[in-house]
Amino acid sequence: MSDLYRIENLRLALADMTAKPLFGPAPRIEILKGLSFGIAKGAVVGIVGGSGSGKSTLGRALVRLLEPSGGSIHFDGTDITHLPEAVLRPLRRRFQMIFQDPMSSLNPRHRVGTLIAEPLRLHRLDAIPDRVARALDHVGLPQNFATRFPHELSGGQRQRVGIARAIALEPDFILADEIVSGLDVSSQAQVLNLLERLVSDLGLTLAFISHDLSVIRRLCQRTLVLHQGRIVEDRPTAELFAAPASAYTRDLLEAIPLPDPSQPWL
């Protein structure tokens, strides 16, 4: 199977505004320190790491919300590392993102229908009402939700709107950044089951960022573990859980509280 994404020696540095002198530029911190990996078409890849490990920065580089400072990103054969926005725009339809907090990523003044239609308009697609209806269907929301506002929905329903927005464009690739960490366990399970179904029904490729290894284990065939801007493990998920190779992965695993009072933990 061919790779949808090909990442070579990816580096990314951001300005550290907390250390900026009054005059002159802020010092730059290297967040990603040379990452290389590929994402096969149709794969579901988990990206895990603690806070500050660079997992969200990597995600944002993949969908080119950030421009890398070194290395290269190839998307379906095209080098998108430094493409200018005008050239990138038509490609953007093909890689979409679902955000962590739907309450802050959805405009509270717009109705759900408008929210889903907005990206479609931006990309000048036709038959927008049909596409919106189809997207709502796919995420299991009734059609009359199109007239509701985000604050009228529960957390799980809002996250479904976030998913509908992304899949309405019929992308090849979706990046999901911590999309279930704000939800309670039951809604978490519903959203994950939905995502699993959409991946197989629509033939999506998915990168799923999370700090929760138990969620990753359920959803992803392959897992990248990031620590301080480097990949410390990149293996099939089952292998990684059976025998974590790096000490950092073991720390992450042991830190998860199992719902079992007899497990020695604290």
Binding site: V185, S186, S187, Q188, A189, Q190, L192, N193, D212, L213, S214, V215, R217, R218, A238, F241, L253, I256, L258, P259, D260, P261
Partner: peptide, 30 residues
């Protein structure tokens, strides 16, 4: 409680809690 939840709802909530040691268990919606 963790040995045997008494109420059907709390049992379902426990079943929805993911367990990394057992990929097929957990993450079932109530």
């Amino acid at each position: 409680f963790f040995a045997a939840p008494r109420h059907a709802y709390s049992a379902a909530l426990l079943a929805a809690t993911p367990k990394y040691t057992d990929p097929d268990a957990g993450l079932n919606p109530v």
